[in-house]
Every structure is written in C-alpha cells, then in structure tokens.
Design a protein around this nucleic acid. Structure first.
Length: 191
DNA sequence: CCAGTGATTCTCT
DNA sequence: GAGAATCACTGGC
C-alpha cells in the first residue's frame, strides 16, 4: 500500500510512476496501464482557471480522488497530487483488469477484458466509481493502491481528447499493453 | 466519422 | 439570472 507522501510531487512524475501500479476499489480493478498529467499552468486542466465547485478536490489534499462527470454521461477518476494544494492531478485512463472480473463484466455489460477498463469512462463504470467518491483518500479502504514491481517500459506522448495543450507529452502508457484506450504513441522514458 | 448527453462555467444583461 | 459554449468520452454507423 502506498503512503500519503507518495503523492506529494508533480503530476507528470506521479503519472509516470503509476504505470504498473495496481488500483483496486472494493477489491475490484487491476494494473494501471495509461495515465495523463494535469496541472494549474496547463490550459487543458480543469484547475487552469482556479478553484470551482467541480474541481474543489484538485485543490484539496494530495492522495485523494477527484471524480467528475464528463459529457454529462461518464465519470472520470483522477488522483490529486503535488506539494500542497497546487491544482494537480493524474487522470487514470486505463487498467489491465486482474481482480473482480465478473463484477466488472456485470457493470459494463460485456465480457471482453480488453474493453472493460480501456478509457476513463469505462474504467469508472467497471469499478463503480462516481461522484460520491470524489474527495476520498486513496490511502485507505475501499481503495487499495500498490506500487509497480520493477521498471515497466513506459511511453510518453500527447494526451487524448483535449483541444488545448495538445503538444504537451503528458500521456503515459505501458508499452505494448493491449488494454490501452488507444494505441501508445510517443517516446520511451527512463525512470 | 459523428451524435448523444447534461453539468459546468463564462459572458453579458 | 439567462443564454451559450465547452467539454480530460463512448458506442454505433
């Protein structure tokens, strides 16, 4: 289990290190294979224009969840980070499902493991995450976050689905994973 | 490729 | 306060 101090750093660093970590919610989840970083200087970030009711969790304690509704339909799950309330977070975009397959298949209404958690909206549906989990700490149950073993190969490239800050290479993906929301692009990173 | 979907936020009275 | 634009997406064509 990762401790609170693990999150007291910038979003790009955390987003990189989270690749290969295991995320569970009520024992259901898997290995993080895709993340994106957002911070307050970033025009694509919800925190760019300062605190609002929706993004309040981004200005709260590091190591807590920021969950928001996307396109009026889906939920997206972020991990707040930074040395204090700096408006930074990591969007968790995809998991390789490893625990609680049946629960995820039931919530998603399909069986293909590649489609259970491949995308931020799908991931939240599979794990049962929604607004009521906004602001909860990831350092305590029902969340469990376990660090990666070793140094998985990570690619860094442009983020998905944004119209501003499109050049910033803050999407991180496990190289070669078949569980990504879209194919990995970008350059290999050393850790 | 593109339509659905509705909350959120911005801008202007 | 009202009207309008903007979405950190998904699924079906």
């Amino acid at each position: 289990m990762i401790g609170a101090d693990y999150f007291a750093r910038d979003a790009a660093s955390l987003a990189h290190d989270l690749i290969g970590a295991t995320l569970l919610f009520h024992g259901v989840g898997g290995v993080i294979v895709e993340t994106e970083a957002y911070d307050q200087e970033d025009p694509a970030s919800h925190s760019f224009r300062g605190p609002t009711p929706r993004n309040a969790a981004m200005f709260g304690p590091a190591g807590h969840a920021y969950v928001y509704r996307s396109y009026g339909v889906h939920w997206c799950f972020n991990i707040v980070c930074g040395p204090g309330p700096t408006g930074q977070a990591v969007l968790v975009r995809a998991l390789e499902p490893t625990q609680g397959l049946a629960a995820m298949q039931g919530r998603r209404g399909l069986a293909d493991p590649r489609l259970l958690c491949a995308g931020p909206g799908r991931l939240c549906q599979a794990l049962g995450l929604s607004r009521e989990h906004d602001g909860l700490p990831l350092t305590r149950p029902p969340f469990h976050l376990l660090p990666a073993h070793g140094r998985p190969p990570v690619l860094a490239g442009p983020r998905i689905g944004i119209t501003k800050g499109v050049e910033t290479p803050w999407r991180f993906a496990l190289a070669g994973s078949p569980y990504l929301s879209r194919p990995a692009r970008g350059v290999p990173l050393q850790r």
